[in-house]
C-alpha cells in the first residue's frame, strides 16, 4: 500500500501498523464488511417475499397449497440453520446442475451419479468450469442469499401469517359490506394493515438475520468472521512479513463493536418505521398518536 512498506521488520510501531492494516489480506477483510451488508440488503426483501408467499399459501383455501405453505413453515423453522446450511447448498447446486444438464445435454448417455461422483456434462456446470473467479464468487454469493432467504422466509411467513389473522375482523366485515371480493379484501384491506402487526416480529427477525451472518462461510462466502479468524491467528515470520501472536481477541472485539453498532442503528430506524406505520391504524398505538395530535 504505502511506499515505505517494503521491509516491515525495520519500521517503527506506527508505520508498521499502518502497513499491516493495509495489506491485501486486510483489504479483503474490509471488503467482507461490504459483502455482509450487501448480502443483508438483498436477503431481507427476498426473505420477506418468500415469507409473504409462504403465508399466503398457508392461508389459501386450496388444500394442497395450504399444506405446502404450512409444511414449509413448520419444517424449515424446526431445523437449526447450521444443519440446514451444511447440506442444503450442495443439494441446491446439484439440483440446478441436474436441471441444466437435462436441458443442454439431452443426449448425454452416462449416468449422472457414478458411485460417489456427481457428474454432469461440462456445459451444464453452474457456473461453467472455465468462468472467471468472480463469476464463481458471485454465484456462491447468490446461492447464499437464496439459502438465507429460504430459512428466514419460513420465519417471516410465520410472522406474516399471524399478522394477517390479527387484522381486526370488523375491518374485513366492513370490506365485505362494501361489496369487495375476496381478492380485493386481501390486497386492499389485509395487506396494508397487517404490517403494523407484523413489524415487531419482523424487526426481531432482522436482528436474528444480522447475527447469523457468521454462518456465511459454510455457504462458501468469505465473511468477516472468517477473515477475523484468519488474520488474528498467530503468524510466524516464515510465512508473513508481519509476524504477531494470537490477536484474534482484538479482531473479534472489532466485530463485536460492528455488530453492536449495526444493531443499534437498526433499532433506531425500526422504531421510526413503527411510528410511521402506526399512523392512522386501529391500534392502541395509533390511538395514542391521534390523541397526541389533537
Amino acid at each position: 500500500m504505502f511506499s515505505f512498506c517494503t521491509d516491515p521488520a525495520t519500521l517503527s510501531d506506527f508505520a508498521w501498523m499502518a502497513c499491516y492494516l493495509t495489506t491485501g489480506k486486510h483489504m479483503s477483510f474490509y471488503y467482507a464488511f461490504g459483502t455482509v451488508l450487501v448480502l443483508l440488503a438483498i436477503t431481507a426483501p427476498t426473505a420477506l417475499a418468500f415469507g409473504f408467499a409462504g403465508a399466503s399459501a398457508a392461508r389459501s383455501r386450496f388444500l394442497p397449497l395450504s399444506l405446502f405453505g404450512k409444511g414449509y413453515i413448520a419444517i424449515v423453522r424446526g431445523v437449526p440453520d447450521i444443519a440446514f446450511f451444511l447440506f442444503f447448498v450442495i443439494a441446491l447446486d446439484q439440483g440446478l446442475e441436474y436441471l441444466k444438464h437435462q436441458w443442454v445435454c439431452p443426449d448425454w448417455d452416462q449416468p449422472v451419479r457414478q458411485g460417489n461422483d456427481f457428474i454432469v456434462c461440462q456445459a451444464a456446470k453452474v457456473p461453467l468450469g472455465n468462468s472467471a473467479q468472480w463469476v464463481h464468487k458471485t454465484y456462491s454469493f447468490f446461492v447464499a442469499v437464496f439459502t438465507f432467504a429460504i430459512v428466514f422466509g419460513a420465519f417471516a411467513a410465520n410472522v406474516l401469517f399471524g399478522a394477517m389473522r390479527a387484522v381486526p375482523r370488523a375491518q374485513l366485515e366492513t370490506a365485505e359490506a362494501y361489496g369487495m371480493t375476496q381478492r380485493q379484501t386481501f390486497w386492499r384491506i389485509v395487506v396494508p394493515q397487517m404490517w403494523v402487526y407484523a413489524l415487531p416480529g419482523l424487526s426481531n427477525l432482522w436482528m436474528v438475520l444480522i447475527k447469523s451472518t457468521p454462518l456465511l462461510f459454510l455457504l462458501g462466502v468469505e465473511d468477516i468472521v472468517y477473515w477475523a479468524r484468519e488474520l488474528g491467528g498467530s503468524k510466524t515470520p516464515r510465512f508473513t512479513d508481519y509476524p504477531h501472536g494470537d490477536w484474534r481477541m482484538w479482531y473479534f472485539l472489532v466485530l463485536l463493536v460492528f455488530y453492536l453498532a449495526f444493531t443499534r442503528v437498526s433499532e433506531v430506524v425500526l422504531d421510526r418505521v413503527m411510528a410511521r406505520l402506526t399512523l392512522g391504524q386501529a391500534t392502541t398505538g395509533g390511538e395514542a398518536q391521534r390523541r397526541a395530535e389533537a
Binding site: G24, K25, M27, A123, L128, N130, E230, F239
Partner: peptide, 30 residues
C-alpha cells in the same frame, strides 16, 4: 461455451488456506 471448454479447460484447485507451510493465505490474501 461448452465447445470452447473442450479446448481450454480451467482446473479448479481446492485448498484450505490455513495450514502452513502446505497452504496458507499470504499478506496479499492469496
Amino acid at each position: 461455451a461448452g465447445m470452447a471448454l473442450a479446448q481450454s479447460q480451467t482446473i479448479r484447485m481446492g485448498t484450505e488456506g490455513a495450514y502452513p507451510p502446505y497452504n496458507f493465505l499470504n499478506d496479499k490474501g492469496e
